[in-house]
Design a protein around this nucleic acid. Structure first.
Length: 463
RNA sequence: GGCCCCAUCGUCUAGCGGCCCAGGACGUCAGGUUUUCAUCCUGAAGAUCGCGGGUUCGAAUCCCGCUGGGGUCACCA
């Protein structure tokens, strides 16, 4: 049984878009293999916890439709799914490591560590723990005496640790290049490295699919698995999403919270579809496809190793494509949902066919259609010179008995001819008079929807 | 700096030794349709496949070096 997971850390505002990307890959990989996708909260850093973060992360994941079968809010057989609730387990296994000699107590103070690090840096060496406490005679006594300690991993200097990455092939590291990582902190909490291995093992995770930034930590994890005598999961390190300058995607240069895109009128399925194209491409070079299709054609081995630049422009294009292909009914309900039903449903329904090809995001709707809900307060063009013609327009419109776009268009066309006015100018004045803007949905149809009375009123105002 | 990962149009990518003086998509530009905008249609510009060596009859594709980029070096994940 394939089991994948996503381990968000509740230390940010929300789910990071990069995490959404890895979540998508994990979810898809699980689905493809009829496996399970689970969520585990990695809240071992008590100092960085952000209130409400966990709830928002889980909510966002659900809004994107990446449903999980086990998680902190829904439970499951391998729970608890919050690391802060699994503290004893880590303690037990840390002891086992110490007994096996692959981990040791360390009593070094922060001060000593700082001095050591500075000295190494000055000498041009890589900062690394010097195994000072490994030589201690009776560390147990100090522990029993209540001295503060951490537990460190004891990586032999002379070994080579290698692992097979599903995307990149074999990767190996030398023991001398790996630091004696802290496993248990002074506060008794485990570090990521300890917790991730223990949890993945007991949660029976078969495939660890995570970002490229974890590659250099993987040998530590491999060493732990081997020390415990546990079967290792398969590893895959996905390329990291990048800023335009190719650095790791960051909030200074891009909106990074997954919910930001939802809030700003992007559709979850469009964002996900765009993310599919980050580091992977459809075998038939298709760009637009749904999650179901992704699951059926996705191959993790075909993932690219280069970090793709996250391009908001292409995302926007894709979002527009999704909107365009939606049924009117669907778009109407998405808009209602997006605007939290604050807009007149009747108007939304009537205007949807007019705007479908004109908006790229749900949030574009209101700026384009504001004039349907309230008369323009200002005009993008100075209309004071056209009072006379507006009077004529008003009278022509007033005579129309069948208030239909077609008739409105015909009558106005006739007037333009009579007055010997260029269509482009004439209709622009009318457009601005009715909508306030130079850019609007089709004029005649808009006037039909607005209704005769309202249209006449808008011209009377300008006469 | 050490270690690790990587390198095809501005961007996302196809390409797995001959089909490639490199194809598609976004974006850009020009034209057409149009009462604005958008859609739609047509077309164009845009990558000497980072550079230099090999291997081979033949390399974007394989090997090596260089250069460049990224990641990582915490009692953060």
């Amino acid at each position: 049984m394939v089991r994948t997971r996503i381990p968000p850390s509740p230390t940010g505002e929300d789910l990071h878009i990069g995490n959404l990307h890895t979540a998508l890959i994990n979810w898809t990989f699980a689905k493809k293999n009829s496996g399970e996708f689970i969520v585990r909260i990695e809240d071992t850093d008590q100092t960085r916890l952000v209130k409400g973060s966990e709830e928002r992360i889980l909510k966002t994941l659900k809004e994107y439709g990446l449903n999980y079968t086990e998680g902190p809010d829904i439970g499951g057989n391998a729970g608890p799914y919050r690391q802060s609730e699994r503290l004893e387990t880590y303690q037990i296994y840390a002891k086992e490591l110490i007994e096996k000699g692959v981990a040791y107590y360390c009593f070094c103070t922060k001060e000593r560590l700082d001095v050591l690090r500075k000295k190494q840096q000055k000498e041009g060496l890589v900062p690394r723990y010097d195994k000072h406490c490994l030589a201690l005679k009776d560390p147990r006594k100090k522990v029993e005496a209540g001295e503060e300690y951490v537990v460190r991993l004891n990586i032999p200097q002379d070994i080579t640790i290698s692992f097979e990455d599903m995307i990149r092939g074999e990767i190996s590291f030398l023991g001398k290049d790996i630091d004696d990582q802290v496993l248990i902190k002074t506060d008794g909490f485990p570090t990521y490295h300890m917790a991730v291995v223990v949890d993945d093992h007991f949660m029976k995770i078969t495939h660890v699919i995570r970002g490229e930034d974890w590659i250099s930590s993987t040998p530590k994890h491999v060493f732990l698995y081997d020390s415990f005598g546990w079967e290792k999961p398969a590893f895959a390190h996905t390329p990291l999403l990048r800023n335009p300058d190719r650095s790791k995607l960051s909030k200074r240069k891009n909106p990074v919270w997954a919910s930001w895109y939802l809030k700003h009128g992007y559709l979850p399925e469009a964002v996900l579809n765009y993310l599919c194209l980050m580091g992977w491409s459809h075998p038939k070079q298709k760009e637009i496809f749904d999650l179901q299709e992704f699951v059926s054609v996705f191959e993790i081995k075909k993932m690219q190793t280069v970090g793709p630049v996250f391009d908001p422009i292409k995302l926007e294009w894709m979002n527009g494509e999704y909107i365009r292909k939606m049924s009117d009914q669907e778009l109407k309900s998405r808009l209602a949902e997006f605007y939290k039903s604050k807009l007149d449903e009747n108007i939304v329904e009537k205007t949807v066919p007019l705007v479908k090809e004109r908006i790229k995001k749900l949030s574009d709707y209101l700026s384009l259609c504001e004039f349907f809900f309230s008369p323009p307060e200002e005009y993008q063009v100075d209309l004071t010179k056209h009072k006379k013609i507006f009077k004529k327009v008003h009278d022509v419109l007033a005579k129309i008995s069948q208030w239909k776009a077609e008739t409105i268009g015909e009558k106005l066309q006739e007037l333009a001819k009579e007055e010997k006015l260029h269509n482009a100018d004439f209709f622009m004045w009318i457009r601005v008079a009715v909508t306030g803007k130079k850019i609007s949905p089709p004029l005649n149809e808009s006037m039909e929807i607005l209704g005769k009375k309202e249209c006449l009123a808008r011209f009377e105002k300008l006469e």
